[in-house]
């Protein structure tokens, strides 16, 4: 018997609990995704979940859809081929921050530019979790990682700004604390056609947390609660008060014809 919405979509032949560390935010993002899929009323045979490599990319293992765990950074390129082959399939791509905008950054900007109809969920824990906490392109300046022991001297990427600039039709950010908003944004992205990005901020107690004195899972969520501010409030916030804080909410929601729809038209026009 199904216990609840989330349990309904978990693979019966997988062992639970999952491999994620106690209190890792990844589990919360996965359940938000499942609730959003359920709300959208998708037939699970017509849903694919594609990931790269990393803790976050273990998501497909657990969910009862057509699932592919690809190579590090390349999920979007695999998903692009799948979408071309199966235009009617809802293709969800889950990636870690390192996966999506580090090693996979090139695929990210080009999938966005092309407007491939892919539903991206980036699990952003600001670090390479699986390999033990190396700095990622989203590790904030000054924060610590095993490869940035003295504090990160690099600038970090804003994934939502990047998605916006490269042409995504829907861009939103929430956190593992703000679960209801997260589910709402993923649900909205599933209802859109085109390249959508939901950046889900997640806490990684084991590496990022340990190195940056937010060791307890609860502390990670409190941090999110205190530091992420809804866009409307953020816009009114004076510059000096924005320091150390981040906006969340829906940043882009526009309509643009996606690549595959255009290609199908091209076939129609040139068929022999």
């Amino acid at each position: 018997m199904e216990k609840n919405v989330v349990h309904k979509y978990l693979r019966k032949n997988k062992k639970f609990p999952h491999i994620w560390c106690p209190g890792c935010g990844h589990g919360v993002i996965m359940s938000s995704m499942l609730r959003a899929i359920d709300k959208q009323g998708l037939d699970r045979d017509d849903v694919a979940v594609v990931s790269g490599i990393g803790c976050s990319s273990r998501t497909p293992t657990y969910v009862d859809f057509n699932t592919i765990h690809t190579t590090h950074g390349r999920a979007l390129a695999f998903a692009t081929g799948l979408k071309l082959a199966k235009p009617d399939m809802t293709v969800i791509v889950v990636m870690g921050d390192g996966d999506a905008v580090g090693i996979g950054g090139n695929h990210f900007i080009h999938a966005a530019r092309r407007n491939m109809d892919l539903k991206v969920i980036v699990y952003n824990n600001n670090i390479y979790g699986m390999t033990g906490g190396q700095a990622s392109p989203t590790t904030p300046s000054g924060k610590k990682a095993t490869t940035a022991r003295y504090g990160n001297i690099e600038r970090s990427f804003d994934i939502c700004e990047l998605a916006k600039a490269t042409g995504a039709v829907y861009v939103a950010r929430s956190t593992s604390y703000h679960v209801q908003a997260l589910e709402k944004y993923i649900h909205r992205s599933l209802s859109k056609k085109g390249f959508t990005v939901v950046e889900a901020m997640t806490h990684c107690p084991t590496t990022y947390g340990r190195l940056n004195k937010i060791k307890e899972p609860v502390a990670g969520m409190i941090y999110q609660k205190d530091h992420f501010i809804m866009k409307a409030a953020w816009d009114k916030l004076p510059e000096e008060k924005r320091e150390g804080k981040f906006p969340m909410g829906e940043f882009v929601d526009i309509e643009k014809t996606d690549f595959v729809s255009k290609y199908l038209r091209l076939i129609e026009a040139n068929k022999e």
Binding site: K3, N4, V6, H7, L10, F16, P17, H18, W20, P22, G23, C24, G25, H26, G27, V28, S31, S32, S176, Y177, V179, Q180, E183, P217, M221
Partner: peptide, 13 residues
């Protein structure tokens, strides 16, 4: 239902 939504291990319903 917040505990159910936020539980990373789907242990509460």
């Amino acid at each position: 239902g917040l505990c159910e939504l936020r539980c990373p291990d789907y242990a509460v319903i």
